[in-house]
Nucleic acid binder design. Structure first.
Lengths: 323, 323
DNA sequence: GTGAAAGCGCTAACAC
DNA sequence: GTGTTAGCGCTTTCAC
């Protein structure tokens, strides 16, 4: 077995409680004793057992991060940032993938609950009811979805949509299409609301669609039928599918139709034409969500909504309306 | 506090040890008692505290997964698969990102060690010495690197290279360039060895290069100077950078130069021309690595190398040599 | 400033 | 088949 607090105590000729204090309440122990104990601990390669500590303190120093799909390019930057921020604060993070299945999501939260101080829920598929019920057992922070009374991190896609529409109208586009996402998506609703409020352009809504390349591919016919000269897609994956589908029909992007995505995922930067997109600050969202979570862990904080700015990144998939 | 084993014991009028057994050794307890206890536990919403359990059993039912960079598109499918497999076996997984920093990597292993039964090291940046030393404290499985005496999961990129070269020679290419990766990369060495062994073609080695789009972009001049009509890149990111750089010089892919990548990441499927690539079975690697790890956790298994097949996916970035 | 003792939630001999 | 007891590694009163 690994070296325990008792080994350190024996080696330094003090009681275990003194060793414990040397680590978790240094000011309570004589400087000389402390430095000696710490030195011996270091020497022996002692590391406090966090799980054992958690048993008495009630703080595991772990958090859970639950996402719908790790492999969706939208999430990795968020996971990376959340994990980095957690590490900065001396927390470890369990990452779990629900495969978009609400039942798995609930099960995961349940089994994780005893081992973490809080859970980050990213784009949860659970009902609000269920989330509120589970909230009794463990603090949450929700990302990318609005849940009443719960700390929430949102990205202001509405602003991005306004910027995008302005960008397009400046390029002479008047007839726009919005290829929406899944019907349950908060982001999709926000986009629709923002687009509908714009008077500069005439926007047709096309959807709902799966939030994937295939979703975009399948929407091409409708887009063409709509007569729009510019399309705003639910996300970059859909936008890429759209561009691909248009190319297959011999329609040039941005020559004949302009396309804008949402998210700013890596493939969008790498595909050609490079995608103009509404950038979602996913890394910032991850970082901030962790801060909020740790904060709410030791302060019983009530809900509160943090909204992060989005921005428009103009690349090569948008151009002047030539019709 | 949440409901504990003691609450269940009281509510069911049995001793805690009976409740414990009802969960962890069901066959040792009378069927009637067991079902009653289980029912009451369910009723109370009791969930065994895994951390407390770990204290006595020595099994945390957690594993650690350490990767160099979560945001690198190569890893998410691996993480996803590993996590899914772990969940199937009732394990949770800590995911940590080292930011390519060996020191962070070691620190992470150290602090994780007490909370996990084993660690999955993906493309570790640590020296073999260090890994072997840390091996004393916790079981490892290493992915994507060869470490003596340690269970290892490798992907046979050599085979992929052979398939790629055959594909290219069949298309009439005789002068090839291999844009290598970072000097320390095991995969890069394997690729060089495999390419050097092919007699059908004349291969120029260009590198080392950073394993990124920028690395590819920067290698364009050398590629052009080499006179090669086809290029094999260290990975898809490099290949995409290469294609981009060639396009900037007015060189058409695959019209004038063919390009093949390695990995089969999402952006490669989405970029245009769609990338011909040597597909790395990352999901399978994650799944199998977890199995090996859990196996070695309770069997003191000695090292052993599992090699997974790669394959060539022909898409649109390769074509006939017209020179 | 330090030691002694109790206890966190659970499992694992050992009795009976 | 079930209760008793001890103890996993640690923190936290409470004495002294």
């Amino acid at each position: 077995m690994a070296v325990t607090i008792r080994d350190v105590a024996e080696a330094s000729g003090v009681h275990v409680s003194t060793v414990s204090r040397a680590f978790s309440a240094p000011h309570l122990v004589n400087t000389v004793t402390r430095t000696r104990v710490l030195a011996i601990a270091e020497d022996l390669g002692y590391r406090p057992n966090r799980a054992a500590r958690a048993l008495t303190t009630g703080r595991t120093h772990n958090i859970g991060l639950i996402v719908a799909d790790i492999a969706n390019p939208f999430f990795p930057p968020l996971i990376k940032a959340a994990q980095a921020q957690a590490r900065m604060r001396d927390y470890h993070v369990f990452v779990a993938d629900t495969d978009e299945d609400p039942q798995v999501e609930e099960e995961l939260i349940q089994t994780l609950t005893k081992q973490v101080d809080g859970v980050l829920l990213c784009s949860p598929r659970l009902t609000n009811r269920t989330i509120e019920r589970l909230r009794e057992e463990i603090p949450f922070v929700v990302v990318n979805r609005r849940v009443k009374g719960m700390p929430t991190v949102l990205m202001d896609v509405g602003r991005g949509v306004r910027l995008a529409v302005e960008h397009l109208t400046r390029l002479g586009h008047r007839r726009l299409a919005l290829v929406t996402g899944p019907s349950g998506s908060w982001t999709s609703k926000e986009m629709q609301a923002a687009a509908a409020a714009m008077v500069e352009a005439d926007v047709t809504f096309l959807g709902p669609n799966p939030p994937t390349e295939l979703g975009g591919l399948a929407a091409v016919t409708d887009v063409l039928a709509s007569g729009a000269t510019a399309v705003l897609a639910y996300n970059d994956l859909v936008a890429i599918g759209l561009i691909e589908g248009l190319a297959a029909r011999g329609v040039d992007v941005p020559g004949e139709i302009s396309v804008i995505g949402v998210d700013d995922i890596v493939p969008g930067r790498l595909s050609r034409p490079k995608l103009t997109t509404i950038a979602m600050p996913t890394a910032a969202a991850g970082r901030i969500a962790v801060d909020l979570l740790l904060q709410s862990v030791d302060s019983e904080s009530t809900g509160g909504v943090t909204v992060l700015e989005t921005s428009l990144i103009v690349r090569d998939s948008t151009g002047e309306n030539r019709k």
